[in-house]
């Protein structure tokens, strides 16, 4: 306890909010091979602005990590990509999110169809109170697929992709709630990829898991990239460094630095980014 306090005294935390200048440094550009493109995206919860003019091009088939201190808007940004924020009353946005050449916030967009194109994995494993099988094929069932063979094939494929098949193949009819935390999270990944989405959104998928389960999920992310565009929010800098190709550092609702992961961690261009990735604050 005391050592932490001493360390804090030795190098006082940098108060960025006082001297905050939105100096931005982005090396990832819009153009070919972009899966999701945010353009001047602003978001307000009531009168409080949570995202400030975010411009971000997320590249197809790559893993993009969102890092930053708590409350910086990482999750909000992630949830804006599949319009999960729509559930919140008094939400306002401006700007565009382009997916496949189309602004998903344009009026008349089918939100349900949009969500089907984006699988999502949450911070805490949230399997439904159904069997493992029913959990995995849930996205297909809500699509109205009833063909047993299709469902079974999808289930196996998704579970194999999420490296859960060997553990779960004999207990597909059992409740998903009987799985361990790590298995539940992999089940949620299987569910997210069952309907073969284009993008996989992961909101701190390992924060509720132990190191071994975390390692498995990271391995899985590495295997899945290429097939899917993955956007992952994480508090764990090592994780971001291990799994991602691009990293975006966010602070106080702004996208501060966004570029190649190695660059961000080894040679950050901005002082704030360096302070954060070296653990001086956050």
């Amino acid at each position: 306890m005391s050592t932490v306090a001493e360390a804090a005294n030795a190098s006082p935390p940098v108060d960025l909010s006082a001297q905050f200048q939105p100096t931005l440094y982005h090396t990832v550009e819009s153009g070919e091979g972009v899966a999701l493109d945010l353009r001047d995206f602003n978001l307000w919860y009531g009168s409080a602005q949570a995202l400030f003019s975010v411009d971000m091009a997320i590249q197809k088939g790559m893993v993009t990590a969102l890092i930053g201190p708590s409350g910086c808007g990482k999750s909000t940004l992630l949830r804006s990509l599949n319009r999960m924020n729509d559930l919140i009353d008094e939400l306002r946005i401006s700007g565009e999110v382009i997916v496949g050449g189309e602004n998903i916030y344009r009026s008349g967009v089918d939100v349900i169809a949009l969500r089907k194109r984006m699988g999502m994995v949450f911070q805490k494993p949230n399997p439904f109170a159904m069997s493992i099988f029913d959990n995995v094929v849930y996205p297909l069932r809500v699509d109205g697929v009833t063909n047993r063979a299709v469902l079974e094939e999808t289930c196996e494929r998704a579970l194999r992709s999420s490296a859960l098949w060997n553990e779960a193949k004999d207990r597909l009819k059992e409740s998903a709630l009987g799985l361990s935390g790590g298995q539940q999270q992999r089940l949620c990944i299987a569910r997210a990829i069952a309907s073969d989405p284009e993008v996989l959104l992961m909101d701190e998928p390992c924060s509720a898991l132990d190191p071994i389960a975390t390692a498995k999920i990271e391995e899985l992310i590495t295997e899945l990239k290429g097939h899917y565009t993955i956007v992952i929010v994480t508090h764990n800098m090592q994780q971001a460094a291990r799994v991602s190709e691009n990293t975006a550092f966010m602070y106080l609702g702004r996208l501060i630095e966004y570029g190649d992961t190695k660059e961000i961690f080894v040679n950050p261009k901005l002082g704030q980014t360096r302070d954060y990735v070296t653990g001086r604050f956050g």
């Binding site: 559930l87 349900i112 969500r115 949230n126 849930y138 996205p139 809500v142 997210a192």
Partner: peptide, 15 residues
């Protein structure tokens, strides 16, 4: 019913 379950379902593209 936990919010996470509803979100999980909605994120799967359920109405």
């Amino acid at each position: 019913v936990p919010r996470s379950m509803r979100e999980g379902s909605l994120a799967c593209g359920a109405s």
